[in-house]
């Protein structure tokens, strides 16, 4: 009996060891499979095997991810730089935090004020703007607050007044993202103190989610929401939103995306050479053309605009995107 049991135990043990050994191949298996899958760009080519494997980590704002732009760009850069690109989905707030900690090599964000602090603190270098688009305020089609045609600030005033009466709801990202920062800016422009707004009642809903999920939540609730136009269009096509775009074309809605490399003097592990190559690639004509064309077939218009077309007040200076970043010299 005891002999038989030991036998069984051995079998079990051998099985467990086998599983353990198999799982040790896990990272290589994962990457190998990834490289042989068909490119999401749809061109049907297989990715070549990268050897040796260099991992390049970026944290990207949710709108560029939710719209699928990274799915499109990732394989192109992987092949160009011969790296394995790890893209972490993060709003601007958490992306900056990853950058401060040195957990990623570059970040893609869209909040100029906090970017400036990040650069001034020395965590990031070589910021380049590479795309822009606009925010919009979406809400129920019958527009119970009557904001259609108003400016951004006046719309927010109306939403607050009607919200306090219990007539409408507003869903905020509430996650310290770039969109959330823009929302706070508009509340300030409308003459309110943001802390008062967020504590003013049930009408103000903090989602604490990415752009896409926040839109879906506002849609379910029949509420108003501040969204970037690209995510709004992408979700409208995919999920058939009931809320519609009501307020656009206010200069305050300008939304500029920036790529920033992590300063290797702060975090010696940061892969500055690849980050520089990546940033220069983003502002290259090749990628600018991809950005211009992205989504046109599906949505009838661009989701993001090449940064060179940005010519309204608040747009970055020309050198913020025309000047390639220099090679890093320690």
């Amino acid at each position: 009996m005891s002999f038989k049991w030991m036998n069984r135990k051995n079998v079990l043990f051998a099985l467990l060891i086998g599983i353990l050994l198999a799982s040790m191949f896990l990272p290589s298996v994962g990457c190998g499979e990834k490289e042989t899958t068909t490119s999401p760009a749809g061109d049907g080519t297989d990715f070549p095997l990268h050897d040796p494997m260099v991992r390049f980590k970026i944290a990207t704002t949710t709108s560029l991810y939710d719209t699928g732009l990274w799915y499109h760009l990732e394989p192109i850069f992987e092949e160009l730089a011969n790296v394995e690109m790890d893209i972490v989905y993060a709003g601007t707030g958490i992306a900056l935090e990853y950058g401060r900690r040195g957990d990623v090599d570059a970040i893609i964000v869209h909040d100029k004020a906090r970017e400036d602090v990040f650069l001034a603190d020395g965590y990031g270098i070589n910021r380049r703007n590479f795309a822009y688009n606009f925010f919009l305020i979406a809400g129920p089609e019958n527009d119970p607050a009557g904001i259609t045609g108003l400016s951004a600030a006046d719309s927010f005033k109306k939403l607050y007044e009607e919200g306090m009466k219990g007539n409408v709801k507003f869903v905020s990202r509430g996650d310290e993202s770039g969109t959330h920062a823009k929302e706070k800016l508009i509340w300030g422009e409308a003459g309110y103190d943001y802390e008062e707004i967020r504590n003013s009642g049930d009408w103000y809903v903090e989602a604490g989610k990415g752009m896409g999920p926040t839109l879906l939540m506002a849609n379910e609730m029949g509420a108003y929401v501040l969204a970037d136009i690209s995510t709004f269009l992408a979700y409208n096509l995919k999920s058939g939103l009931d809320i519609v775009s009501l307020v656009e074309k206010d200069p305050i809605f300008l939304n500029v995306y920036a790529a920033i490399a992590i300063n290797p003097e702060m975090h010696s592990g940061a892969k500055i050479d690849i980050a520089n190559q990546f940033i220069n690639w983003l502002i290259s004509d090749e990628v600018q053309e991809i950005i211009e064309a992205y989504g046109k077939a599906e949505y009838g218009r661009s989701l993001f605009f090449p940064i060179a077309g940005c010519d309204i007040p608040g747009c970055p200076p020309v050198e913020a995107y025309t000047e390639p970043v220099p090679d890093y010299k320690p």
Partner: peptide, 17 residues
């Protein structure tokens, strides 16, 4: 399949260790 395989192998590695 790749995602499922990854869930399985990560889970099994964890339980074995």
């Amino acid at each position: 399949m790749q995602i499922a395989g990854r869930s399985l192998s990560i889970g099994l590695t964890s339980i074995v260790i």
